[in-house]
Design a binder for these strands. Sequence first.
DNA 1: GAAGAAATTGTAAACGTTTACATTTTGTGT
DNA 2: ACACAAAATGTAAACGTTTACAATTTCTTC
Lengths: 345, 345
Amino acid sequence: MSIKQVAKIAGVSIATVSRYLNSPEHVREKTRRKVQEAILQTGYAPNALARNFRRGRTSLVVVILPSVGDPFFAGVMRGIWRVAREEGYSILIRETQFNTLEFDEYSDIVFSKQADGIILLASTSPFMKEGNGKLGKNGGHKGEKLPPIVIGCETVAPQLSHYPSVRVDNESAAAEATRHLIRLGHRRIGFISGLHTSLLTRGREQGYRQAMTEAGLEVADNWIAEGRQTIEGARGAVHYLLAQSPRPTAIFCANDEMAMGAMHELRRAGLRIPEDISVLGFDDIRYAEVLDPPLTTVAQPAEEIGEHTMQRLCRAIGGDDIGGEPEIVPHRLVIRESTGAPPAD
Amino acid sequence: MSIKQVAKIAGVSIATVSRYLNSPEHVREKTRRKVQEAILQTGYAPNALARNFRRGRTSLVVVILPSVGDPFFAGVMRGIWRVAREEGYSILIRETQFNTLEFDEYSDIVFSKQADGIILLASTSPFMKEGNGKLGKNGGHKGEKLPPIVIGCETVAPQLSHYPSVRVDNESAAAEATRHLIRLGHRRIGFISGLHTSLLTRGREQGYRQAMTEAGLEVADNWIAEGRQTIEGARGAVHYLLAQSPRPTAIFCANDEMAMGAMHELRRAGLRIPEDISVLGFDDIRYAEVLDPPLTTVAQPAEEIGEHTMQRLCRAIGGDDIGGEPEIVPHRLVIRESTGAPPAD
DNA sequence: GAAGAAATTGTAAACGTTTACATTTTGTGT
DNA sequence: ACACAAAATGTAAACGTTTACAATTTCTTC
């Protein structure tokens, strides 16, 4: 069922059928009817494989993210999809499972025409060398141009700073959230960090430290616990924090998923939230407000991040030089009931 | 950077380079080294677009699901991905947002070579006519063969019963869960159903009704509330159920996402779970056990469903006739603390 | 109705692979 | 060293589009 058969039945050349499909305004009304009739009759559908091959583009974009199950990323994805649909792209997803990625592997996705561009929502290997491989500032292999890549959510590693990104100011946001705890009267505030391979999580930790220092509060090393950005990771971290003495009266979690795990583990230890201990999250996933108690957290405009990321990628694919400046989108501290004054000692 | 240039540099024909890439055992050691050298030197990566075009396959599979954010589907997706990776497929995702889908639109994905097969995790239009369009039993348009489609999770609409599926026995599972509530002493049990356009949700309701009837209990119409399968949908449903008199002492939710919304709304109404009212879910998403109280629910082997679905699809794409029988995977009632005895009147 | 412009249509090449088939090279047994 | 089989390589066609360019038709104007 190829264009050739349609052409024969319609009694026109294949070029005309092609034009009917791609720029109908260039074919005469009478011919248009003939072709349309032939298409209906044969049930012809253009072969996307051949079309993409000929056009030299896949109409595919790969999104690389740490974990698909995370509702926060689901929000980002939704934004990406919205724009993708408008622009005629389909989305391929690759999950890193919190492993940092070797980069050349992914740039090859573009060079080998498996996709037209890449959105990176996951952390890049901090060990990647400057100008290494096909992604360096100095251009790719043999002067090929850089593959279209846009980074979302994550902080950009210095070696990739020539790529554009869209994200919140994690440091300020975390500082602001920490100040909220301080304002409530907390002095001993713990921090549950994600894996340090993620710059994003380190940025949040940095903000936390800054707010603490600024308020003249001690940041004890044993109030910071690192863990995988999962419920389980947070459980382990809470376990560790509760064993410290003195222990924190509030815990700031690097994201909501971890906050959920933390809350559960704290309850299992017999602590009431927020009477005995406060919990603070990051992301404002849709479950945050239905938890008991509803979670105080930092809201990120997930869909907006997704949309902007995809929009910039489209421009990059189109050949525009979209520069390397990060676009900072606004965050918002959402105060609910998981945070309160510390218990009287 | 095409195979032609590599061939020239290596001093061999393009056929040899192609063979080097696809069946190196058919090229002599000496030649192999020459080609390898040329590839390294040029940084050549095979053009996937051309390759797929020539081979007539996309190596893509489309997964159609109601909502990407749902952690249950994330589990199914993980299973799908695992198998996809092994088999060399990439996955495209389409979200229906709980709308039923017009089917021909999706079958065209295959006919127009945008993908090699389709996994359907969403409900199909109940209005689709038997043998309609390109998906009917009697074969597609002009005797084309049926597109490779496998249905997962959802109950298969009768018009699609010639396609294979993988799912739990929703009716039995729901009946079993309901019996658990009855055993605890509940007599007035409410059911929060998803949209009735989903057969899956109707199967669960059927199981609920069956268990009730079997125990000689009344199923009052006003104890069944329909809503979108979201937190918000469940909120509305709870609102309705609480207004009934007498009102249920237990609520069985068609899935965990709804159970989370329901629990929140119940708490807002000042009810304690399970002392005042019991809540039961379905799916056993990873958040179920960290809720307060941890949610009693029916566990589905999400990853396994995904794996099996994808495996069957691969066989169908390979040309095997995999028949239309549904594969039923085991479910398991997970009793936690959101269910208890009804309050003494 | 003829000339010229504009609109429409046709012809054929090109995209980068894979692969059937033909040809050449290598290996084996005498 | 020869004949023959087996292995390796080369040649060229094909996949289904799009599109530059050429050829034809239609329209406009006189």
